[in-house]
Amino acid sequence: MPESTTATRAAAKLPRQAGTAQGTWGDDRAPARRRFDTGALLTHLLLSLGAFAMLFPFLWQLLTALKTMPESVRVPPTFLPEDWTWAAFEKVFTSLPFAEMLTNSALNTLGRTLGQLVFCSLAAYAFARMTFRGKNVLFAVFLSVLMVPSQLLILPQHQIIQQLGLLNSVPALFLPGMFSAFGTFLLRQFFLSLPRELEEAARIDGAGSFRIFWSIMLPLVRPALAALAVITSMWSWNDLLWPLVVNTDPETMPISAGLSSLEGQYLTDYPVLMAGSLIAGLPMILLYLFLQRHFVQGIALSGSKG
C-alpha cells in the first residue's frame, strides 16, 4: 500500500494540518477513525490514480530510452527492457552537440535569472519605497509591458539582435529575458509590505539609498527573490519560441530547440528521442525536487495577486 510509506515520509510535514484539526481531536476521535477507513481510503485511491497518470508517462519514457531500437517498436511491447542499454543516451550525445546545448540552456537560465534578480529588485524597490517625478506614468508603462504578448515583439527583437551582431550567440538567448515586468511587480509587492521604520532608522544613521537597499531591504525579501529565481529559471530553461528565432545553429541552441532538431534527425528512433527528452527535462525536475518550497511559493505568489 503506498499510504504507509508516504505517510511516514510525510509525517514530518504534517504538523501544520494536524494543528488546524487539533481542536476537534479530543472528543471526536472515534468517528474520525471510522471516516479514515472509507473516505480517506477512497480519497487516496482517486489521488493515486491521478498521480499514476502524471508519473507513468515519465516512467515509460525512461524504459523506452533503455531499450534497443528494435525492441522499442515490438508489438506487443515489452514492459521492462530485455537488454538494458545506454546506447540511446550515447547516441544523443554523439549525433548532436547535446552537451553544448545543455550548457547553452544553463547559461541562458543563469543570464536571465541573474539579470532579473538585479534589474527587477532595483526597480521594484524604487517603485515601492521611493517618491519621484513620473512614477505613476512609468509604472503604467511597466504594467503595459506585462500585458503585451511576446509574439508582438519578437520580429523587431530578432532584428535588434541581428543588428547587434548577436544572432547565434548565447547572449542572444538571454538578452531580452533579463528584463521582466512580472519580476518587478512580484518584488514590489514584497518591498511594499516591509515596515517603514527600518529605512528611516538607517537614514538617520546616515546610510545612502543604495546601502539601505542592499544591506537592509534586499535581505528581507530573500524569500521573494528565491521564488522569482526559481520561476524564472524554469521559464528560461523551457522557453522554445525565442531560441528557435535567434539561434538556428545547433552549437548555440539551447536544449529546447535542440530537441526539435533531434526529432527531425531521429524521426522514428524512439529510444534516442526519449533519452534526449529525458535528459532535457531532468535539470528542472531536480531543481524542483530540491527547491519545491520556492516553486510553490513562486506559483502561489503569482497566483494570489492578480
Partner: peptide
C-alpha cells in the same frame, strides 16, 4: 481532506509535468 497524509508528495507528483519543458513533453506524448 482533514488529516490526509502525503499531501506534499501528491502535490509534487502532479506538478512534475509542469516543470518539464514542453519540447520534451511533446516528444514523450
Amino acid at each position: 481532506r482533514p488529516g490526509l497524509r502525503g499531501v506534499a508528495i501528491y502535490r509534487a507528483l502532479y506538478f512534475l509535468p509542469f516543470v518539464t519543458l514542453p519540447a520534451a513533453i511533446g516528444l514523450l506524448w
